[in-house]
């Protein structure tokens, strides 16, 4: 009798557990809900809303959002300024990422050793990374000032002519790239040094016994072993460079003659200076597409060559 009762109890519990809204089943979803909710609210919804706005004409205050189809996009693509913005962004990104990565790799190779001098150098090179971009911009505006700047003073000292660093269309973008490289090099060097230190020493000893010349040792051992670091820094660098804003806003305001206007500054101008939200949103959509495509391409093409341990 007692046995039958126990069995009955168990069956009841089983039935309870199999109920439609059982806590066991719901628990994982309940646990993950806050994260999903925040992600949707702050990522998915704004992206969706941006895409929605890119098909409308809106000035921020008007209660009416006029549907205009794809005319924002067609206008954007026929705009000479916007084409310049795209080319500026690509030039800026390519040179910033290329220079930052190659220079910081060289610095890392040089600084990757013990000793007080090298630790001091590492710390010095890293310090620009912790300075806010606004301060960095102000600092470099002063250094690059055409009349009173440190750079021109130095150029004059060694008998060269002054350069209009920020005020001539030929040099302004180069100057901004210079600032970005200066700011980014410290972080990249530090990450490279960490990467270099994780390469086993005996690989280099084996290479030594294999008569490996230094450049071949660099190309065949150091670079392949650093490939995950290189890959990571390249992606981060490309995404950051495409989104450059602060230095441009403060140092050149996209000028002179649109020569330093890049994506995010262009979006900012149309959105918050000209109040053409639909138009700015369309540019944002294009930026999103470009960054997504670049990231996918990186993963597809480069990840095959990356060696993960």
């Amino acid at each position: 009798m007692a046995f039958a009762k126990v069995q009955l109890d168990m069956e009841e519990k089983k039935a309870e557990r199999q109920g439609f809204l059982s806590w066991v089943k719901l628990r994982p979803y309940a646990m993950i809900f806050p994260a999903i909710f925040i992600f949707c609210l702050f990522f998915i919804y704004p992206i969706g809303y941006m895409i929605y706005l890119s098909f409308h004409d809106w000035n921020f205050v008007s209660p009416v959002k006029d549907f205009v189809g794809t005319s924002n996009f067609s206008y954007l693509l026929s705009d000479r300024d916007f084409r310049e913005v795209i080319s500026n962004s690509f030039i800026y990104t390519f040179f910033t990422v290329f220079l930052t990565i190659s220079l910081s790799l060289l610095l890392a190779l040089w600084l990757n050793r013990g000793g007080t001098v090298y630790s001091f150098m590492q710390a010095s090179i890293f310090s620009p990374h912790i300075i806010s971009l606004v301060s960095v911009s102000m600092l470099w505006m002063w250094i690059m000032d055409a009349d009173y700047g440190l750079l021109n003073w130095f150029l004059n000292l060694i008998g060269m002519e002054s350069v209009m660093w920020l005020t001539s269309p030929e040099y302004a973008l180069t100057s901004l790239i210079l600032v970005a490289v200066w700011k980014g090099i410290g972080f990249n060097t530090l990450v490279f040094i960490a990467g270099l230190q994780s390469i086993p020493k005996d690989l280099y000893e084996a290479a030594e016994l294999d008569h490996t010349p230094p450049w071949r040792r660099f190309l065949k051992i150091t670079v392949p072993m650093l490939s995950p670091t290189l890959f990571f820094l390249t992606i981060i660098g490309v995404i950051n460079s495409f989104q450059v804003f602060e230095t441009i806003n403060l140092m050149t305001a996209g000028g002179p003659i649109n020569s330093t206007n890049t994506f995010v500054y262009y979006i900012y101008q149309y959105g918050f200076q000209f109040f053409k939200i639909g138009y700015a949103s369309a540019a944002g959509v294009i930026l999103l597409v470009i960054l997504s495509v670049l990231t996918v391409v990186y993963f597809k093409v480069l990840s095959k060559r990356v060696h993960y341990r």
Binding site: P200, D202, L203, E205, A206, K220, P224, M225, H307, R309
Partner: peptide
């Protein structure tokens, strides 16, 4: 070498 020190990328 004790842990062989093979070049892992080759």
């Amino acid at each position: 070498f004790q842990n062989y020190a093979l070049y892992p990328t080759m």
